[in-house]
Design a protein around this nucleic acid. Structure first.
Lengths: 211, 211
DNA sequence: TTTTTTCTACCTAATTTTAGGTATTTGATT
DNA sequence: AATCAAATACCTAAAATTAGGTAGAAAAAA
């Protein structure tokens, strides 16, 4: 491998997509595909001992979600650029990825030209979007203008359990915590979302894809 | 092209997926890819003047949905086998496809082996599924067995207001009813859905698109 | 190392929901 | 006219949530 090549890793749980990306990128002599992975564990393990320039990362993965994984990758190897490749077009998701250090966001219907252009763009330090994504982020909806609050790990965990219909006592049992602690977290969650009861909390959480 | 080759067409709105399928199938000397299409119009037009053995068909397409398209294809060219390729794993969707004449259903995380095996299987007149799909169709979910309950007009109205975060008192005020009446309706709603609290009620209602 | 955030846990009290019922009235269907 | 589903309203009592705090320990960031 000549040193001037761009080292690329692909993370996607769909073999077809991996194959597609690989075959698209192999046409370009400047790209070298160092590895392909079907889950988060695989890529995290790989970057511990291998330098990678670009990671093409799917949002939905079997063992974790791409948004969290992106954060993790940027924390461990900040010099690696992450380009998200997803079929989710919700603005909130795109924004979260950028927040977590992603250098770009492409929908899966992106063309080959968009893909290669994005990689070159990301290498130059730009944040890159496919055409469709650009449109989505350019017009924030009224709802999203408020922005959704940033939740802690624990809060996300408890929010999920609340949407599953579990009571504070049940959650406390499951997490080996005091029910009073769960109540505090619920209180904080409602305060962050600006709502007054569980019903609104769940509705917003589902609408914002936070669960 | 030698006549004994299997003539294949691919329909998917994601260039990456098309590329992936193509590159997977090109390794097999018995397969000939006659065309790739990103929408329903394209393939319908193509089969008017070209014989095709197998169509790999995505569920989600820009101009129509794969389920209807499958029906249309089978109506026009019954000798062509359609294999659905989708990332939707809902039992109801899979069943509809089979109903509409599909010869198989693969999830997008299917392996290359599953793909080629499915094509050969479909050519032999079998209906083929990837492993994961087999599991899904073998065990109907509890939810689907029960089916979702029939709600009365009033119940739907109150369910909607509950999901908006309104308390029984607020709803009662708005509808000029006793709060106790609202409680009864909520009780009946929960009973019909088989849940124990508002959280589960809302989650199910949203998931079933009842609100 | 210092600072800040997050997680933990408690207090009191009011409000709301949930679980068992029962029962009358209204409106449609037979 | 009789019947049945739907809508209304009530009873009691337990369980759960919500609102207003405070505060120490642990973890992460600066």
């Amino acid at each position: 491998m000549s040193p001037e090549k761009v080292i690329i890793a692909i993370v996607d749980d769909h073999p077809v997509v991996i194959q597609g990306l690989k075959s698209m990128l192999q046409n370009d002599q400047f790209f070298y595909i160092a590895g392909t992975f079907i889950d988060g564990k695989g890529i995290l393990n790989f970057i511990r001992s291998n330098a990678v320039d670009i990671i093409l990362l799917d949002i939905t993965l079997p063992d974790t979600n791409g948004i969290e994984l992106c954060k993790e990758i940027k924390r461990k190897t900040p010099h690696t650029s992450v380009i998200m490749i997803s079929n989710r077009s919700e603005r909130s998701i795109i924004m979260q990825c950028i927040q977590n250090g992603a250098s770009g966001y492409l929908l899966k219907n992106a063309t080959m030209n968009e893909l290669t252009a994005s990689i070159h763009g990301a290498l130059s330090g730009n944040i890159v979007f496919s055409e469709e994504v650009k449109e989505i982020i350019s017009k924030p909806s009224v709802k999203e203008l408020i922005g959704f609050p940033r939740l802690t790990k624990r809060e996300k965990e408890i929010l999920k359990m609340v949407t599953e219909g579990k009571t504070s006592v049940m959650i406390a049992d499951e997490l080996f915590l005091s029910p009073l602690t769960i109540d505090t977290h619920r209180k904080n969650l409602m305060h962050k979302f600006g709502v007054n009861n569980t019903a609104e909390l769940i509705k917003i959480a589902i609408q914002q894809n936070m669960i």
